[in-house]
């Protein structure tokens, strides 16, 4: 009997991670619910104003819709993976899978593909709400750019999420590290506020990390003052470079076992042997 085909196994794994996501209410709320709530609140508060950018101006409700759509894609990949992978590692689930004939890369693929699907659902939800409730206009000529930007963005943030999951050893600190990195960054990355007139250091901070380039590139695909096809190749290359960095860290540092199961450090080893 041959093994089930790779495509089938990856499909099963992706489905299993999706089912698992939908069965964890807190994950669904923070990944998909909270950005929607933020969108409704921010638009109720500030949505009727106009956002000025260097290139032109557009309704603030459209700025929020597209910025938060991009942010949802990031939270579905980066935050979600940095949360869930260490939880599965702490539970010993990763170690169990490593003892099965499923190649480990297929397991990881299922995790990442499920995150991409969740990101896609989140972005579509956001944009639909934008069109229906806030009059966001979708220009079909710019959708290829939106799609490519989405793919580059979720790949990068999934790789960075896996990198963080590899660097941080326990599930509780991984969740904290994910939020502590992405939330402050969101404030300087055009998600909640257009940062054109911000102090120089804030602009620099935003431009070092991939969040702002991603959010801007995605917003450009919907902004009326940007001409089709709206591909922002420079930003995409910059974002992808971060993705490669994340991938290298994840590949080098990823661990399958809960921390503490293999004794680290001389004292822990002695304790383990004497126990």
């Amino acid at each position: 009997m041959p093994f089930p085909s790779t495509a089938k196994l990856i499909a099963i794994q992706t489905r299993y991670q999706l089912v698992s996501f939908w069965r964890i209410p807190v994950a669904v709320f923070f990944t998909l619910g909270l950005p929607l709530v933020m969108l409704v609140l921010l638009n109720a508060l500030f949505g009727s104003s106009t956002t000025e950018t260097a290139a032109g101006s557009w309704p603030t409700s459209h700025f929020y819709t597209t910025g938060l759509a991009a942010f949802t894609a990031v939270s579905a990949t980066y935050t979600n993976l940095a949360n869930m992978v260490p939880i599965r590692r702490d539970e010993g689930v990763l170690k169990r899978w490593r003892g099965t004939p499923l190649p480990t890369w297929m397991y990881v693929s299922g995790f990442i593909l499920s995150a991409v699907v969740i990101a896609f659902i989140g972005v579509v939800l956001m944009l639909t709400l934008g069109v229906v409730a806030y009059g966001l206009e979708i220009d079909p000529a710019k959708m290829p750019a939106a799609f490519v930007t989405f793919v580059v963005g979720v790949s990068t943030f999934a790789a960075l999420g896996m990198a963080l999951a590899s660097l941080v050893k326990s599930a509780s600190s991984a969740a904290a590290a994910a939020n502590a990195t992405i939330l402050p960054l969101a404030f300087v990355s055009n998600v909640f506020i257009q940062v054109d007139d911000a102090p120089r250091w804030i602009e620099i901070l935003g431009s070092i990390f991939p969040l702002k380039p991603f959010v801007e590139a995605f917003q450009d695909c919907f902004a009326p003052f940007v001409e089709a096809p709206a591909f922002n190749w420079g930003s995409l290359a910059f974002i992808a470079a971060w993705g490669v960095l994340g991938l290298v860290v994840a590949l080098r540092k990823f661990t399958w076992e809960p921390s503490g199961s293999a004794p680290r450090g001389r004292r822990a080893r002695r304790a383990a042997v004497d126990a």
């Binding site: 299993y16 089912v19 698992s20 069965r23 964890i24 599965r88 539970e91 010993g92 689930v93 170690k95 169990r96 003892g99």
Partner: peptide
């Protein structure tokens, strides 16, 4: 294994 979890949502 001695201690390894299973996905408790399933």
């Amino acid at each position: 294994l001695q201690s390894s979890g299973v996905e408790s949502e399933f």
